[in-house]
């Protein structure tokens, strides 16, 4: 890979790359994963974050994170980052809200 490719090839552009056999894995979405998918659609419908901004936000995570984080984990991190940039909330607000959610749900399975 040339140095130009570092900036001109998106990490998720993998058509033709070497890869192992297709493992026919699938799973029933967990409730939070389905909520995350619904959130993505709603953000698009409400003209807050369109689908292409989400894709770009995932690409912005870089090759190593894209390789390690599962699917909806990538989406929610992308939404958080785009939310900071668009001024929907600040990193501090998100940190405080996450602490609140964690405290509230520590003894309960599955927040909603």
């Amino acid at each position: 890979m040339s140095v130009e490719d570092f900036v001109s090839r998106l990490p998720n552009d993998i058509g033709g790359a070497a890869a192992g056999p297709v493992d026919r894995v699938e799973h029933e979405l967990e409730p939070w994963e389905k909520r995350c998918h619904a959130l993505a659609d709603v953000l698009d419908f409400r003209k807050l974050i369109n689908t292409e901004e989400k894709r770009k936000g995932v690409e912005a995570l870089g090759e190593s994170l894209i390789g390690k984080l599962p699917y909806y984990e990538r989406w929610i991190v992308a939404f958080a980052n785009i939310g900071f940039t668009k001024g929907f909330f600040t990193p501090t607000e998100l940190a405080e809200k996450m602490a609140e959610v964690e405290a509230r749900t520590a003894d309960h399975p599955k927040p909603l």
């Binding site: 967990e30 909520r35 953000l43 807050l48 991190v77 929907f88 909330f89 809200k97 996450m98």
Partner: peptide, 27 residues
Amino acid sequence: IVSDDAPGYYEIMETAVRELLIAKGLI
């Protein structure tokens, strides 16, 4: 797929992002 008792880091992030957006009247 195992479900732990407490929600995971990214699940908490999903809940927090969603609640902030709702609180701010965006969704």
